[in-house]
Computed example of a mutant assay.
Amino acid sequence: MSELIPAKEYLGKLKEATEFVKAKVANEPRLSSPRVMIICGSGLGGIADILHSPQPKIEIPYADIPGFRTSTVPGHSGKLIFGLMGSNKVPVMCMVGRLHFYEGYSFQDTTFPVRLAKKLDIETVVVTNAAGGVNAQFKPGDLMVINDHINMPGLAGHHVLRGENLEEFGPRFQPLSDAYDYALRKLFFTKARNELKITRNIYEGTYFFAAGPTFETRAEVRMIRMLGGDSVGMSTVPEVIVARHCGMKVLALSLITNACVGDSPPSAFDENPVPMDSGMASHAEVLETADEASKDVQKIIEATVNAL
């Protein structure tokens, strides 16, 4: 289990990062007080393309920000982008490329940007991800609004709030029965169906957080399904927990990029077995499916944020 940075040192790094970012956006008053943070999942970095501003959007590479880690995953460009979204010009900070536990980073590292968002007085966090469809009803390209989660690493002792509690952000024992804001979920569905007339399947369900980086085995898929998971992925939950610990409202969305294989593997005694790689997940498939659905995701998120 990775060593934790002492709270005093962590808060010092956070203060330095906050001051650095504030200085970068200080010359554009409309961008200096963002109200919404959007975390772009695999293949969904195009969400930042719908930001607009009277000046060029402000882009800050992670590598330039004190205390920030860099993203190492294909499809994650690794920068904060500040701009305005929608006709109401809502000031937004986009995190284009998230940080993952499986990259070797601690949860303190992966959720550092969320704490930064709180320091910037951001009120709402929109979290997107690419996920595998565990629910047999889900097909690649479907969307799932998250209404609950199962934090498997957290249940096993790798919890994002482990260690000294940061009292200035939230309580020692954070309730999570209201983690995914009802009003935001309702708004998302209303905008998608009534205003934009999106025909893509949109469900609600439970997200299962697995540490990764391997995709799940067949037996693990059956276990996740039995435990109540509808989608599975390697992110989101640590960010959501920290956002709630900071008192921010959360809307979270899974883009289903592949159907998880849960059938038992072919037996060595079978004469004509189904190929072992039938339905096998790949990161390339994740990015391809995300690209196809990204335009709908962008439209719905823009309409939702515009109403905040």
Score class of each variant (00 low, 15 high):
residue 205 G to W: 02
residue 66 P to F: 02
residue 140 P to C: 09
residue 165 N to I: 03
residue 59 E to G: 12
residue 109 D to P: 09
residue 62 Y to K: 12
residue 86 G to L: 12
residue 56 P to R: 12
residue 251 L to P: 03
residue 10 Y to T: 05
residue 210 A to S: 14
residue 153 P to G: 04
residue 168 E to Y: 06
residue 306 N to I: 02
residue 201 N to H: 14
residue 268 A to I: 11
residue 267 S to P: 00
residue 295 K to R: 14
residue 268 A to Y: 10
residue 28 E to P: 00
residue 161 L to Q: 05
residue 156 A to W: 05
residue 205 G to C: 07
residue 205 G to R: 07
residue 217 T to V: 01
residue 107 F to Q: 15
residue 117 A to Y: 01
residue 220 E to L: 01
residue 271 E to H: 11
residue 243 A to T: 02
residue 263 D to T: 11
residue 209 F to K: 00
residue 174 Q to K: 15
residue 183 A to K: 10
residue 132 G to I: 06
residue 101 F to N: 11
residue 302 E to C: 07
residue 3 E to Q: 14
residue 174 Q to G: 04
residue 100 H to P: 06
residue 245 H to Y: 06
residue 62 Y to D: 11
residue 79 K to W: 13
residue 246 C to W: 03
residue 136 A to H: 14
residue 64 D to P: 09
residue 27 N to A: 14
residue 101 F to E: 04
residue 297 V to E: 06
residue 277 D to Y: 06
residue 46 G to Q: 05
residue 206 T to C: 15
residue 183 A to H: 12
residue 20 F to W: 12
residue 103 E to T: 08
residue 241 I to Y: 10
residue 233 G to C: 12
residue 76 H to L: 06
residue 232 V to Q: 08
residue 196 L to C: 09
residue 72 T to M: 10
residue 251 L to N: 01
residue 265 P to E: 01
residue 25 V to P: 08
residue 151 N to K: 07
residue 196 L to H: 09
residue 258 N to H: 12
residue 166 L to R: 13
residue 254 S to M: 04
residue 235 S to Y: 05
residue 40 C to H: 04
residue 196 L to S: 11
residue 215 F to M: 07
residue 189 F to H: 14
residue 194 N to W: 01
residue 9 E to G: 04
residue 262 G to T: 03
residue 255 L to H: 02
residue 251 L to V: 02
residue 7 A to I: 07
residue 230 D to P: 09
residue 166 L to W: 10
residue 205 G to P: 09
residue 87 S to N: 15
residue 184 L to G: 05
residue 48 A to L: 06
residue 229 G to Q: 08
residue 127 V to R: 03
residue 243 A to I: 03
residue 62 Y to C: 10
residue 188 F to H: 00
residue 138 F to M: 08
residue 144 M to R: 05
residue 206 T to V: 15
residue 144 M to P: 08
residue 178 D to Q: 14
residue 151 N to M: 04
residue 169 F to D: 03
residue 114 V to N: 06
residue 133 G to D: 04
residue 55 Q to C: 13
residue 170 G to A: 05
residue 240 V to W: 00
residue 294 S to A: 14
residue 268 A to R: 10
residue 211 A to D: 11
residue 11 L to E: 13
residue 249 K to H: 08
residue 17 A to T: 13
residue 301 I to R: 01
residue 267 S to Q: 02
